[in-house]
Design a protein around this nucleic acid. Structure first.
Length: 844
RNA sequence: GCCUCCGUGGCGGAAUUGGUAGACGCUGUGGAUUUAAAAUCCAUUGAUCCUAGAUCGUGCGGGUUCGAUUCCCGCCGGAGGUACCA
């Protein structure tokens, strides 16, 4: 019966305000052309990564970033901005499909239930989203434009000369054949070994393999025809255009690393009458190449005529490698390989060197062939040692290092015309020589690979493409037929057919006598590649975004002003979005070339035990439980008070109690508890003035503003706690100061603030009022404290007039008894006076 | 191995153009209020010397400086990313 007494009645007023906001559309943000739009205001577009609405519901990690953006968004609103702060659902995805396979429940049903639950949870946290702009990637009205954008890629190629995408119609006009156009299309079909998951019945992108393997799925290599997107053409731009963005350096580094740019040279060797090109970052070591290694899959191996004995070895070795993924190859640290029986001719000196195959050379990087310089490459060194291949020094190390296995730069030696040159200069000279002699050229190589874009799933956007049954040529579905939705199905089981589950829907597949539909679907990334654009104009039926909306809400130097979301998406999602945005930019559909001007990644919230939250560890905190016990404001405030936003930090329920107590303290400034448990006016809010409280309040304005601008919310909350402590101690608080304070707190704890504000008789919502203006004059101190150090050690504090002269400060410091005890018997060598800070006396 | 970041009380963390280390909160201890509890309030809470006051103290070792948590060099430890990428 005796329910735990609530320190303030959040359970009554939080739902009340949430309904009020929803009914009055308090956070509705009209855009250009919409009723109530005020074009005179500046705009601010602040965006959260939209969630995948899983069956498990919201995790306490979600509200971390969402609260941060909510605070910044509310702050900007109060400062006169039109703030676009939307929310939606990245709702395609495997879990709903797998649930469908198990239960027969259509993914659309599951998805709807999950989004409803997520929406409820977010609304119960009081976030100021404009729910009229809600989007869902599975909504046919959204799918239509995802497919439309895909067709823009399909109809484009990358022009190397201008470094941008252009319509393939330009090539058609020049008389290019379809076959040649397909060689350059941004969306193209390609047969290659891919990661096929028998357990899931789909292929996966390289980037996804490890994630699913961890979850227990099986993945194997298998050659299949797949749709790819030619992201590699954008590699250089994706690096260069990252530079000016306001992103954390660590995230930029992650992307650069992933794109993996290497400068070097291509060198052509003759192998038994065939040209074989290798890529090397150290062309200066060409004289030290003592053998060549081909990847086991290298096409040359089929051409070579080396005799049956060698052929057998080669085939045996190829078979042993074929079953291993790149990842597994990496795990076998022990070098393996076989001699092919063939020899290559080193172009620079005519040396005959043996050609080997080994799986430490990958077909997917460079040309799938290397010149091995064992003296100056650790892998080649290891291989040469194991197989007794010659090791020839061609670099004289800087400093006192052993030349064997020395991989840094130095001075060329045993290298003919390069001898004596520093590595840097030797590189230049040898490249010049290679070009002159038509044996190679300078080359920039990237690790980034083209994006495997097709999946064999039901719950994804179907490709709006058709195949001619006779010619085998593909073509696009007319735009008027978009969206192209999946057919209704009862049975979602994988067929084992690598064309995916849609292959069973014969009615759907057969488009006409001649034409058949593509049965692959797009990966989950597709919808999240462009959703930030759709929020600006979510109901547009003519265009994916109107030029007016694009123009008003976007920036030229990065569309979204501020993007917040987990760093687990730092590489893939952010890279894919940037790629699509650049294509849309190249084709003239958007003005900016980058989607996100500023980006920030909140840290992970760990379990109370300091470990990552997981069901198996039983340390997961459910936001619903926290809201039930302490209210939404407490949850919001706690997540911001835990520590720096970008840092990983452990959950502590005691900490929630702490901020809960703080909010109760604010409540009790305005209210007094009756013996019956009700609340009446405290009578402490009065008309009047109080210079001390005015000073504290204005200091708090300053500190909270700084905290919001630098995303260090924890320090802003500390400031508000100190301010509240001052109010509590004061007894009576001037009404205008308290109302000012409420404005400061409102972005953090909007429910509590609106409730107090309304009860005080104010009629306008705090969130719709202007942010307080700092009065610097109130912060001016007439007296300040100076500290006095002797030899850098604190010895005394003195209260002095704020405008004290250096001379007076020095004189008073030297006379201070706490100072003289430490200077007596010593000679004062020097006195440093830092105005308004300290006096340091150097004496010995 | 490489890239990026981090290391401050019992805990989360404050303190940046180098200037009082430990703000704010949690925990602990003592007290007030209460029939009791909840809630609330007050004091105290880096270590050592066991009062004063002093000494030590921001991972370790150096350096620059009147002065270093902050800047520089070299280590140690941790987190994340990536990895036979030629």
């Amino acid at each position: 019966m005796s329910e735990k007494r609530k320190p303030y009645p959040f359970d009554l007023f939080e739902p009340k305000w949430q309904s009020h906001w929803a009914e009055n559309k308090t956070y509705r943000t009209p855009g250009p052309g919409e009723e109530g739009f005020d074009a005179s205001k500046p705009k601010y577009y602040i965006l959260d990564m939209f969630p995948y609405p899983s069956g498990a519901g919201l995790h306490v990690g979600h509200p971390e970033g969402y609260t941060a953006t909510d605070i910044v968004g509310r702050y900007k609103r109060m400062n006169g901005f039109n703030v676009l702060h939307p929310m939606g659902w990245d709702a395609f995805g495997l879990p709903a499909e797998q649930y469908a396979i198990k239960t027969g429940t259509h993914p659309r049903i599951t998805t709807e239930a999950n989004t409803n639950n997520f929406r409820r949870q977010l609304q119960e946290l009081g976030f100021g989203y404009d729910w009229d702009r809600e989007i869902n990637t599975t909504d046919p009205k959204y799918v239509r434009w995802t497919q439309w954008i895909f067709l823009q890629l399909y109809h484009s190629y990358f022009c190397d000369e201008d470094q941008k995408a252009k319509p393939v119609s330009e090539l058609e006009a020049k008389g290019w054949s379809q076959k040649d156009i397909d060689e350059v299309r941004l969306a193209f079909i390609h047969e290659a070994p891919v990661n096929w998951s028998p357990s899931m019945g789909t292929v996966l992108a390289n980037e996804e393999v490890e994630e699913w393997k961890k979850k227990g799925e099986t993945v194997e290599r298998r050659p299949l025809r797949q749709w790819m997107l030619r992201i590699t053409k954008y590699a250089q731009r994706l690096i260069d255009e990252l530079e000016p963005l306001d992103w954390p350096e660590s995230i930029k580094a992650l992307q650069r690393n992933w794109i993996g740019r290497s400068e070097g040279a291509e060198v052509t060797f003759d192998v038994e009458g065939n040209d074989v090109t290798v890529f090397t970052t150290r062309p200066d070591t060409l004289f030290g190449a003592t053998y060549m290694v081909l990847a086991p899959e290298h096409p040359l191996l089929d051409e070579l005529d080396v005799g049956d004995d060698f052929d057998d070895d080669i085939i045996k070795y190829q078979e042993s490698c074929a079953n291993k993924s790149d990842m597994e190859r990496g795990l076998d640290k022990e070098k393996t390989g076989v001699f092919t029986g063939a020899f290559a001719t080193n172009p620079v000196n005519g040396e005959k060197i043996p050609v080997w195959i080994a799986d430490y050379v990958m077909m997917g990087y460079g040309s799938g062939a290397i010149m091995a310089v064992p003296a100056h490459d650790s892998r080649d060194f290891e291989f040469a040692e194991k197989f007794g291949l010659p090791i020839l020094q061609v670099v004289q190390p800087n400093g006192d290092h052993d030349w064997q296995g020395y991989t840094d730069s130095g001075t060329a030696t045993n290298s003919g015309f390069l001898d004596g040159l520093k590595t840097k200069d030797a590189k230049k000279k040898i490249i010049h020589w290679l070009v002159e002699n038509e044996k190679g050229e300078k080359k920039i190589q990237f690790k980034l690979r083209d994006w495997l874009f097709s999946r064999q799933r039901y719950w994804g956007e179907p490709f709006p493409l058709l195949w001619d049954k006779e010619t085998g040529q593909h073509s696009a579905v007319p735009e008027s037929e978009l969206p192209l939705l999946q057919p209704e199905m009862e049975d979602f089981k994988p067929t084992g057919d690598p064309r995916g589950p849609l292959i069973n829907c014969t009615d759907w597949i057969n488009y006409s006598e001649k034409l058949q539909r593509e049965t692959n679907t797009m990966p989950q990334w597709a919808g999240s590649c462009w959703y930030y654009l759709r929020y600006c104009d979510p109901d547009n039926t003519e265009n994916f975004i109107s030029p007016d909306a694009e123009n008003y809400w976007g920036n030229d130097d990065g569309f979204v002003d501020f993007y917040v979301g987990g760093k687990e998406h730092a590489v893939l999602h952010l890279l894919y979005s940037r790629f699509w945005h650049k294509v849309l930019n190249d084709l003239g559909h958007v003005k900016s070339s980058e989607p996100f001007k500023k980006y920030f990644a909140p840290g992970l919230i760990m379990g109370e035990d300091g470990q990552k939250m997981s069901k198996s560890l039983g340390n997961v905190v459910n936001p619903d439980d926290v809201v039930e016990l302490y209210g939404a404001d407490s949850l919001r405030l706690y997540e911001m008070f835990m520590g720096p936003l970008d840092q990983d930090k452990p959950w502590a329920m005691k900490g929630v109690e702490g901020v809960h107590r703080f909010l109760a303290k604010v409540w009790r400034v305005a209210f007094l508890e009756e013996s019956e448990g009700g609340w009446v006016s405290s009578g402490k809010i009065v008309e009047g003035e109080n210079a001390d409280l005015a000073k504290v309040t204005h200091q708090t304005i300053k500190r909270v503003e700084e905290a919001i601008n630098t995303l260090r919310f924890n320090t802003g909350i500390s400031a508000m706690m100190e301010c509240t402590n001052a109010y509590t101690a004061a007894g009576e608080i001037p009404r205008d100061l308290f109302l000012t304070f409420l404005k400061l707190l409102s972005p953090f704890a909007p429910h509590l603030v609106e409730e107090i504000n309304a009860t005080l008789g104010e009629t306008e919502l705090v969130s719709e009022q202007a942010w307080p203006v700092l009065d610097e004059s109130l912060l001016v101190e007439s007296e300040i404290q100076l500290i006095v150090q002797v030899n850098g050690k604190l010895r005394a504090r003195m209260t002095v007039p704020a405008d004290i002269s250096k001379e007076d400060a020095e004189a008073r410091a030297l006379a201070d008894p706490n100072v003289t005890t430490h200077t007596d018997g010593k000679t004062v060598r020097k006195v440093i006076v830092v105005p308004r800070k300290l006096v340091n006396i150097v004496a010995n």
